[in-house]
């Protein structure tokens, strides 16, 4: 049973913003509801107005724009994303990461926009978006704007979104090179669990290896210092150094899921594994 609130389905971007501004602190955007409704159920949140974004045109579409990469409507359910041929072939790491979110049922509702707007440090799609250097296309009181994913997360539960502003689409720029991505997520159970630590690695044909971490800092983070170590060296020693650097850059907390110390250790272990697997995958793909 949920406690009463009003539900409104926004028919346009403008209406959504308008509703949100009018509701003020009592308003909440709704996409898949897999986070929002849980919080309402647990009595952590008691909004007055819930503004459904799914009726807005384009919110659930996946479009490939020539030369511009892929544009994903923010309310697109993760399962649709995972099953999309273009996403799978060009942004395999995102598909893989999205696939680790919750259960089949959850992914049929949970959206990409909801996943990042939640701004959980453990949001599973975030490391992949960081590595693809996604652009967050928002809509707000002063119209549309673009936020680089690296600037989107501001802290646990906090984003760069302003009042009345919502994520409209997520743009994934074209990757010109061949690449191979790996997402390693350490949970407690093997299915339907939040990450204790997660690591994404994306190896590019040109020699770059991109690395991002989840659940080990106030926000998901890209660890460029660790990446730099791998710029010209990919031997065992370099991988070890990069993993150690990732660990240094992590700033996890202790909570009910794991201690800070364990998270640090696992950051190092998983980073090394992710790099190895990404490099091996890229090599296999090149063959």
């Amino acid at each position: 049973m949920l406690l009463p609130f009003d539900y409104v389905r926004a028919r346009s971007r403008e209406e959504a913003v308008d509703l949100a501004l009018r509701a003020g602190a009592g308003g909440r955007f709704l996409a898949g509801g897999t986070d929002l409704l849980v919080r309402i159920h647990d009595r952590q949140l008691r909004p007055k107005v819930v503004i459904d974004l799914k009726g807005i045109e384009g919110m659930q579409a996946i479009n490939s724009c020539d030369g511009e990469g892929l544009v994903v409507g923010a309310a697109t359910p993760l399962n649709r994303l995972i099953r999309d041929e273009l996403v799978r072939s060009r942004y395999g790491l995102l598909a893989e990461a999205a696939h680790t979110v919750g259960s089949v049922q959850i992914r049929n509702r949970a959206s990409l926009g909801g996943n990042i707007s939640n701004a959980s440090p453990a949001a599973d799609t975030a490391p992949a978006l960081l590595l693809y250097e996604a652009e967050i296309l928002t809509w707000g009181p002063s119209g549309g704007r673009k936020i680089l994913i690296g600037e989107f997360f501001k802290g646990p539960g906090a984003t760069a979104l302003g009042e009345g502003e919502f994520v409209f689409k997520v743009r994934l720029p074209i990757l010109k090179e061949r690449s191979f991505g790996v997402y390693l997520k350490l949970g407690r159970t093997r299915a339907v669990d939040l990450a204790i630590v997660s690591v994404a690695a994306l190896a590019l044909e040109g020699g770059e290896v991109r690395l991002a971490l989840g659940a080990v800092a106030p926000t998901p983070i890209r660890v460029r210092e660790a990446e730099a170590i791998l710029r010209n060296r990919k031997d065992k020693e370099a991988i070890k150094e990069a993993a150690a650097a990732a660990r240094r850059l992590a700033a996890p907390i202790s909570d009910i899921r794991a201690s800070r110390e364990y998270r640090l250790e696992m950051t190092e272990v998983l980073t090394a594994r992710a790099i190895e697997q990404a490099l091996a995958g890229l090599a296999a793909r090149a063959r």
């Binding site: 647990d42 407690r188 159970t189 093997r190 299915a191 339907v192 939040l194 009910i256």
Partner: peptide, 24 residues
């Protein structure tokens, strides 16, 4: 079941009290 120092249960849900899923 995990408690804080004042005896409050910290994990009264399947989110943080894990039981085996089919994957185990």
């Amino acid at each position: 079941m995990k408690f804080d120092e004042r005896g409050k249960l910290l994990n009264p849900s399947y989110v943080d009290y894990k039981i085996a899923t089919a994957a185990e």
